[in-house]
Write a protein that binds this DNA or RNA. Structure first.
Length: 345
DNA sequence: AAACCGGGGCC
DNA sequence: GGCCCAGGTTT
């Protein structure tokens, strides 16, 4: 794209965005911490899902300090149901760095902001361009899809090194006077017009500058190869209640899947048993729910039960008896909430 | 470079 | 059922 074309492309994109942009909560502010929270929530998560979480989160943690000093359990509870819980823990770690190292001011340059936990190349560019007006690239899945079509880039976006191609393209194309609208415009275009399947090219504000539209193969781009294999796990979950009416729960390890989230006793079917793993003898279980829970690279096939404890020994460290009221306060993954809702019908 | 890390919506 | 979503970290 030559200089004049680049100017026209910028103008068409920025004017379309300022005219057509959705009214979203995080678009009513340029406060860097608030933009940061929104960008982390939006990682791999749809706008409509994020909106209620963002509003509740900002109400509870309005400033970097309030989040920095919050108990992790409460933070995870606010994040419950969003998934990718390490995002929340990394966000708090990053915010603590800002409070302690940068006097609570989010850094305004890529070198420093990129050092913060949970802030990668995309999030760094998003905060810098949206909150600070810096001409920095913010390349996400939307941007790669849009630019693969506009510029007819046919490299495999599943390969990590390909992102660099798009970052260099944005470095060249970005409107230095409207960095926020330009970067958000690319993403909004990807979300509303330049969609993965059946792009609405006839409504596209930059159609005149799109090589794929000219070539008629917009729907075939981007090129993405990677396919992943799914692991399967068969599990039994047992809600165990003791004579005092309390329920047995355990905290998951601080690393790995669903780190630091709480769950009811869970065993791999045929490989373990409740008595041995948890030190609790139980009466005859009654069936609750049978269902499937799909993660990114793993599927849990869950049979869930309710049982009464008949004999209890010494519990291991992350295992405790909690009342119904206490359990309601614990951050739990969705499959456990699903089972818990059966107990409280 | 590949694997890991949630959950939901859409086709 | 597979794909995608305002990705980052770990190995």
């Amino acid at each position: 794209m030559n200089y004049e074309y680049t100017q026209q492309f910028r103008q068409a994109l920025v004017e379309w965005f300022n005219r057509e942009k959705r009214d979203l909560p995080w678009r009513r502010t340029t406060e860097p911490y608030h933009i940061w929270v929104s960008e982390v929530m939006l990682q791999q998560t749809r706008v409509d899902t994020v909106i209620p979480y963002y509003n509740r989160f900002i109400e509870r943690f309005p400033t970097a300090e309030t989040l920095a000093y919050a108990p992790e359990q409460e933070l995870l509870k606010m994040w419950e149901g969003l998934g990718y819980y390490s995002r929340a823990r990394n966000l708090q770690a990053g915010v603590r760095e800002v409070v302690e190292t940068y006097h609570s001011v989010v850094p305004d340059n890529r070198a420093d902001i990129s050092k913060l936990k949970g802030v990668g190349p995309y999030t760094a560019g998003a905060i810098l361009s949206i909150a600070y007006g810096k001409p920095e690239h913010a390349v996400d899945g939307n941007v790669m899809r849009v630019l693969s079509r506009v510029l007819h880039i046919k490299e495999d976006i599943a390969l990590p090194k390909t992102r660099k191609v798009f970052e260099e393209a944005v470095d060249y194309l970005i409107d230095p006077d409207n960095t926020s609208s330009f970067n958000q415009g690319l993403m909004e275009l990807g979300a509303l017009i330049c969609t993965p399947t059946s792009p609405k090219c006839l409504l596209c504000p930059v159609r005149d500058y799109c090589i794929a539209f000219e070539a008629g193969d917009a729907a075939e781009l981007p090129i993405k190869t990677k396919k992943v294999k799914m692991k399967q796990l068969e599990l039994d979950v047992v809600v165990v209640q003791n004579a005092e009416g309390r329920y047995l729960v355990e905290k998951r390890p601080e690393e790995g899947l669903l780190a630091n989230m709480w769950q009811f006793p869970i065993i791999e079917r045929g490989q373990e048993n409740i008595a041995e793993k948890y030190g609790v003898e139980i009466g005859t279980p009654t069936s609750l729910l049978t269902f499937k829970h799909v993660f990114s690279h793993l599927t849990w096939h869950i049979d869930s039960y309710y049982a009464v404890a008949t004999e209890t020994g010494i519990l291991a460290d992350p295992v405790e008896w909690f009342t119904k009221e206490q359990i309601t306060q614990l951050p739990m993954p969705v499959p456990m909430l699903k089972i818990w809702s059966q107990i409280n019908v």
